[in-house]
Every structure is written in structure tokens, then in C-alpha cells.
Design a protein around this nucleic acid. Structure first.
Lengths: 187, 187
DNA sequence: TGGGTGTTTTGACAAATGTCAAAAAGTAAA
DNA sequence: TTTACTTTTTGACATTTGTCAAAACACCCA
């Protein structure tokens, strides 16, 4: 819980009555490796924060699985489109390690946003951060080689190699596993 | 101004005192073709809405120019990172046609967000919309061929070919002009 | 220890896209 | 209409990445 609150403070320091009220609506949970937090076709009602473990967000493209995002410890994740638009998700989310998480229900978040301007502001900043990240990733995908994308990922997550199978990393980088293997060999 | 207000209502219908107060802080402007709204290296203080014309957002990658976004009529645009993080922009913005725009200054927007919860909410929804768009574009770039991306662009902007040089479109799609030319020829 | 299973690498070749140079087409002004 | 200029297309070839199949490696556990 401490890590979560610290992350939230980074975005916006809620004044005290709201801070603890906001803290209260996060539900702590723990699941084994392989557990699905979200199956494709259902609406993503929760915004997650992972304190320990790894989550993988993926979808089916024709017959293949495509990894859209890898969430390591101390990060937020969810199906952006499904959560905000309240539509069935084309994404699924499962855990690559036994994990500990906090989950925040969409409706409870929205209620608190309606009630407290401060919560709304904090949430707005959180989304703004996601938008900036999303832009950076887009530029990376569009204008860097597989090699460069791999280096960038390693720089941001030095221990990802030990924790996530290469097939998922390759898919996340937008290349095949074989290409990733060759890129790695070249250095 | 009507178009702008209609777009804003789509996101969130502001109640009346705030709606007109919000409308007041948008500054109308008109510039000739080629005018730079933002030069790289300076902070992007304005969020723009274009009512007539085309704006191109681009940056320098080594010796080349890369088109990051093309904003046709009735859309919002700005340098996301610079505007939110208040840092010098690596992006520049200029106009491909004589254009009419509305501009909203960062500080005025933030002041109104602080003052009115409703404005904050509307702005939050606006950013949420950008985030969803950004996600969709990311998937498109990562998992579609040049051919498919071209078709998608045309479907969303049928008149873009008449208004934007192919070199810019190619760059926006993340391919070279020659490849775009061949993709076009193949249908 | 030795299968058995899943993961990662390698090889041979195909497909997509990039690069550079030149030709063709289009546009605008004299 | 002619010229000068810009934009778009084409050609030849190089590079990157993908595909499919097989080999090498790593790990678990009986």
C-alpha cells in the first residue's frame, strides 16, 4: 500500500481527508502465476496497480497472440479502451509471476472523481502521464530499428530479461522472436 | 466558434456559466500557409483547434524531417509532451494551408481547471479521448502493413490526398515516399 | 541420471521496405 | 507556350525483417 500511495503522491498530493478515502477504495489482492485478471470479450472494470510480479496485456491477431504491454512492479495498467469506453475488451490480461496487486473499480473511481475535484485532478494527471508514455512508445515503434527498441526496453527495465520469456518481449517490441534473438546475438 | 463549442459539448456538456467563460479564453487567429505555430526548442504554450486548413506536426530525426501528425479541420492538436511537461518541444508545427484556428493558453486552461471542477472534468475526458486515439494509432503502426495503414488513413480522411503532399503522408505513415508511391500503384 | 517439456538460437530462404538515381508528371510564372 | 521548379513515379539493388523447420539449450522431476 505504501508504494501505491507514494506513486499517487508523485502525480498529485491529495489533501488528507481525501487521500485516505481514496486509499480505501483500492482492493488488495494476490494471485498465482497464470491467473487471468481480464479475459477478452469482457469489460475491464478495474484499474490495476501491481506491487509485486508481472502482468502481460495481450490480444489475438488472427491466430497469433500479440503482447501489447508488460507491467512490472510498481506500475499501473488496464485496458484503456475498455475501461474508459465501457466496451468489451479485445485485450486480455494475465500474470507471468505470482503477483500482488491493488484494484480500483471504475464506478468507485468515477464517484470519487465526481465528489472531489482534487481526485479528479489527480486522475487527470495520471492519464496525462499515460498519454505522454504512449506518445513516446509510438515514436519509438515508428522510427527506431528493432535493435534500438530492444536497447531502450532494457535501459528502462534491466531485469525484464530474467522475468519475461523472449517470445513475449519480441511481440511487445513488434518483431518476431527470431529477429529478437538475432538482434541480441549481435551484441 | 460554433464548431469548437460543438466539439467540446461532445466530450462534456458544461453548465452555462462555465461554458461561456470557457469559450471566452479561446483566442481566434488566422495565418497564411507556411506559418509556424511552434518552433522546435520552444515550449508549446497553446492547445490548438483548427477550424479551417491543415497543420503538420513534425520533428528532425538526424538530417530528415519526420511528420508526427497531420491535423485537418475540426481537430485539436498540440505537442503533448511540451504542453504538459512544460519543456522545450522537439516538435515543430506549421500550416500547410492558410488556416483559421483557436488557441487556448496552458495557464488559462489550468486556472479554469482549478477554479471549476466541471472544466477539469471536461478536460480530463478530452485527454482520455486522445489516449484512446493514441492507443489505436500505436496498434496500427505496430501490426499493420504500409498498405493497410494507408487504407486506414484514407478511410478516415478521404480528402487528405488533395491537401497534403505525399512526402508528408509517407512520413506520417512511417514509410518512405517511394514505398508509398508503390503501395498506391498496387491498387 | 535421464527423459520430457518448454524456451531460445540457428539456417535457408522469402517478402517487405529502404536507398539512391533518374525519369516522368504536374504547376506556375514569364 | 516555354521554362523552371516541384512533386511523384520508376528502376536497380541493398537491408531489414519474416517464415518455417530444425537444432541447441535449460529446467523440472521421477
Amino acid at each position: 500500500m505504501e508504494e501505491l500511495l507514494r506513486k499517487l503522491d508523485d502525480m498529485y498530493c491529495l489533501p488528507e481527508p481525501m487521500r485516505s478515502e481514496f486509499a480505501k477504495i483500492w482492493q488488495p489482492m494476490a494471485y498465482p502465476k497464470g491467473h487471468h485478471l481480464l479475459r477478452d470479450g469482457s469489460v475491464n472494470n478495474y484499474l490495476y496497480f501491481i506491487t509485486k510480479g508481472v502482468a502481460r496485456i495481450y490480444y489475438h491477431k488472427q491466430d497469433k497472440e500479440v503482447t501489447e504491454w508488460l507491467a512490472l512492479d510498481q506500475t499501473f495498467f488496464f485496458s484503456i479502451r475498455s475501461f474508459f469506453q465501457r466496451t468489451p475488451s479485445h485485450l486480455a490480461i494475465h500474470l507471468l509471476e505470482p503477483s500482488e496487486l491493488f484494484a480500483l473499480h471504475h464506478d468507485q473511481l468515477m464517484q470519487l472523481c465526481d465528489r472531489y475535484h482534487e481526485v479528479e485532478k489527480m486522475f487527470r494527471r495520471m492519464i496525462t502521464g499515460s498519454l505522454v508514455l504512449s506518445q513516446i512508445r509510438m515514436e519509438s515503434i515508428q522510427f527506431e530499428t528493432a535493435q534500438q527498441r530492444y536497447q531502450r526496453l532494457l535501459a528502462m527495465n534491466p531485469d525484464i530479461l530474467q522475468r519475461v520469456p523472449l517470445a513475449y518481449i519480441a511481440s511487445f517490441l513488434g518483431i518476431t522472436q527470431e529477429t529478437l534473438s538475432r538482434v541480441r546475438g549481435a551484441r
